[in-house]
């Protein structure tokens, strides 16, 4: 089940790429409302339909011990803004070849374990399901705060950042509030803080390194999740990323799961 959580974490990263990042250089001298800031983040998100990423996930425990996993991930934006992903571990050898297929934001999830030699369907992830014990739900990780299920307020505006408070309105959320630190120049969430029911800060997410291409598009190169309660960190390091690659129409299907190379 640990493997599944790693996969879910990576899926979350895919979603983060879509929503946390913006590339449009926006002059911020003018006063912006919170909705305008969120709209700019949405509008300036990388424009891609397919994506290929090779990354490393480094899991760091409270003693500083590290475990590293390398993986390849493909994603594709489907109709209705849903995303399909296919993720395969490349190393270490103990998990090499283990593959997860996630179709349309978890409408169908399959796990392929080479030792079992057959795909296992997994019940659709609940939006509130946790990723890797971080307490972050699928919904939280999607960072899709555009809709009316959240109230958003600018708490503070510094020279470089907007500090935005997001309060979920639904009863079935794990968090009392979420704080976004949005870069005023590049319009991406540099840091996200998650507060529990009694408003204790429990988790943080930081984009520590980014890359801006010639079109001004931003690719996050290093992302760090911190579980403050368990004193555990998970770092995602992007090694390679390609946008708008050609994928066959049946790529995100059962057929691809057991193929030796992707």
């Amino acid at each position: 089940m640990k493997i599944r959580k790693y996969f879910l974490m990576i899926i979350a990263i895919v979603l983060l790429f879509s929503n946390l990042i913006t590339s449009k250089q926006v002059e911020a001298e003018q006063l912006l409302t919170v909705d305008e800031i969120m709209d700019k983040m949405e509008e300036t998100a990388p424009d891609f339909t397919t994506q290929k990423t090779i990354s490393e996930m480094v899991i760091i425990d409270e003693k500083g011990n590290e475990e590293t996993r390398k993986m390849i991930m493909f994603s594709q934006k489907e109709e209705d803004d849903k995303t399909s992903t296919l993720i395969r571990f490349l190393s270490p050898n103990s998990v090499k070849g283990v593959t997860l297929l996630n179709i349309n934001n978890g409408e169908k999830i399959y796990l392929y374990l080479p030792a079992y030699n057959k795909p296992r369907r997994i019940a659709g992830a609940s939006k509130q399901e946790e990723f890797m014990g971080t307490g972050l739900s699928y919904e939280d990780m999607s960072m899709d705060y555009q809709d009316k299920d959240y109230t958003k307020t600018i708490l503070e505006e510094t020279e470089k950042e907007f500090k935005i408070e997001v309060i979920p309105l639904g009863e079935d959320t794990s968090y009392k509030k979420i704080i976004l630190w949005v870069d005023k120049e590049k319009f991406y969430s540099k840091k996200v803080e998650f507060y529990d029911e009694v408003e204790n800060l429990t988790k943080t997410l930081e984009i520590q390194k980014i890359e801006i291409d010639e079109k001004g598009k931003i690719t996050p190169l290093e992302i760090e999740f911190s579980d403050l309660e368990n004193k555990k960190k998970t770092k995602i390091i992007i090694k390679e990323m390609e946008y708008n690659i050609d994928l066959s129409s049946d790529f995100f299907s059962l057929r691809t799961l057991s193929k030796p190379t992707l």
Binding site: R120, I122, A123, G124, A125, S126
Partner: peptide
Amino acid sequence: FQGDFPGIEGATLR
């Protein structure tokens, strides 16, 4: 068959 367990979200029936 394998898929969602009716009535229990997150459970898989095989």
